[in-house]
Amino acid sequence: MDNKENIKHEPLVRFHEVTKRYGSLTVLDKLNLDIQANEMVSIIGPSGSGKTTVLRMLMTLEMIDEGVIYLEGKPLTHMESNGSLVLADEKHIRSIRSNIGMVFQQFNLFPHMTVLQNCVEAPINVLGLKPDEAEERAIDLLGMVGMLDKKDEHPSRLSGGQQQRVAIARALAMRPKVMLLDEVTSALDPEVIGEVLSVIRKLNSEHNLTMLMVTHQMGFAREVSDRVCFFYEGKIAEQGPPSQIFEAPKNERTKQFLSAVLNAN
């Protein structure tokens, strides 16, 4: 019984004392962070504060130095062996990683494939969907991001905003439980940022997806987030609902950062 209760309240994602170092530089310092299902969490902070590293560790693109990351209560970065946790092997990682999707700053579409092929490649070859089933799913998603009319184009013929919308559809086609958005508008021209943000807004309001977003768009973070985490030197210096972080920050660093960013705008 107790056990069942526990599972119910288990956060979808849990970072437990996670440390990441590059040489002598500590990028993440004993990070603890829980993300509940259907929660939209934004990560803000100065560059070099470890924001992007949080996402890259969760996506298993970076090795973990200390601590454990859990997904639905199961260790992602580690696995049990003789009652103790050891670093996970490729097989274990792959069995859990399919629950996580990521959208990158530089879109990273596959240039040798059309928009549609980009969106069906993994569903067919990783999830084992039938080609027409995968195509149906991709067409639905491309319609949602407004890219259906470009489905047979190669990425090089699309604008940055269009490529990013395709990248969102490609990640969603895997039906992840949690979506990671890594500065998805930072490489875009100002006039196309809006089209990408409106897709994310839609995901948040209509699809109730769990999202973890690193962003420099303070207005957007404030508008859509359930919770905002301010990172400073590899730690969460302050976190709370957007109203608290943006209107009444308590931490000195948060105040400095926000006034610098907001003044620049």
Binding site: L61, R97, F104, Q106, N108, F110, A122, N125, V126
Partner: peptide, 19 residues
């Protein structure tokens, strides 16, 4: 980044290389 995009779609190392 192409490796990372493929990994984020949970591709196996062989599929990633081949496709």
């Amino acid at each position: 980044q192409q490796w990372e995009a493929a990994k984020s779609l949970n591709m196996s190392p062989i599929l990633l290389m081949r496709r």
